[in-house]
């Protein structure tokens, strides 16, 4: 490495911005100690370098990834970018630098210290997506379905396909409280947009009746002789409970 090794990159938080960080690291033969989103940066003793988001540079990097290391690397990077794991930017950079060296085999180097954390991060995202396909709860607000979720990772784009195909004829909205974004589905069209705040309307009597029926079912179906609260918490972590009608009272 010829460039500096004690610098922190600052970027705008977009995928394009991150790809420009990769461009700079390669061009300057430089390995930053970390990559931060500029808006969230805190004071530091390290030198910082603001990386300008240049769509053309970003595109060059974006094109090079599937070309040099295959579609699976492209998908892995996209997935990890949607997670909230710590230092995801640095993980992506390390992985891509390794990929430029090793080519298509990089996705198969599952035991490598720069690959395994990517696989783990992707797993965390896909796991949470899978859990929320089950744990998400809709309420019927006069014919339109509404749900609030509070996921760790940005799973909305991954949930979209599942719910839009399952509830084709319905109109629904899912608000992601963590990432302040909403998915809206109506007349066969899906849209994801920023949404800072959403207060669900008061549930109607009919809606309350179904929630009560569901709660009664939930409480009845457990076998008391087998009670195992640890097992329940392992399978359904507490951070999801606030959004599930049958669990809210237990918090």
């Amino acid at each position: 490495m010829l460039g500096k090794n004690d610098v922190i990159y600052l970027y705008d938080g977009s995928m394009e911005g991150l790809l420009c960080c990769v461009f700079t690291a390669v061009a300057e033969k430089e390995m930053p100690v970390d990559i931060w989103v500029e808006e969230e940066a805190s004071p530091t003793l390290f030198d910082t370098k603001a990386i300008y988001t240049d769509p053309q540079r970003a595109k060059r990097v974006a094109v090079s990834i599937p070309k040099k290391m295959g579609e699976c690397a492209k998908e892995l990077v996209e997935h990890v970018f949607f997670t909230s794991v710590e230092q995801k930017e640095l993980k992506i950079l390390r992985f891509l630098l390794l990929g430029y060296q090793h080519g298509t085999s990089v996705c198969k180097m599952l035991g490598h210290p720069d690959v395994a954390p990517m696989i783990d991060a992707e797993k965390a995202l896909l796991n949470e997506t899978h859990l929320l396909k089950g744990f998400l709860r809709f309420s019927d607000y006069g014919g339109t379905l509404g749900a609030v979720i509070g996921p760790k990772h940005y799973v909305l784009p991954f949930l979209a396909h599942h719910f839009c195909t399952r509830f084709g004829k319905e109109t629904f909205m899912i608000w992601d409280k963590t990432h302040k974004a909403a998915l809206y589905w109506k007349d066969g069209k899906a849209e994801i947009f920023d949404m800072q705040q959403f207060t669900p309307p008061n549930p109607s009597a009919g809606e309350q009746q179904y929630r009560a029926l569901w709660k009664r079912f939930y409480n009845t179906i457990a076998i008391s002789e087998r009670e195992n609260l640890n097992c329940r918490r392992t399978h359904c972590p507490k951070r999801y409970w606030a959004y599930m009608h049958e669990m809210q009272d237990l918090l």
């Binding site: 409480n219 008391s224 049958e246």
Partner: peptide, 15 residues
């Protein structure tokens, strides 16, 4: 793969 929608107090999946 199947989807679990809740887990009852005995730790079993409710699908």
């Amino acid at each position: 793969s199947g989807i679990c929608h809740a887990f009852s107090a005995d730790g079993r999946c409710i699908s």
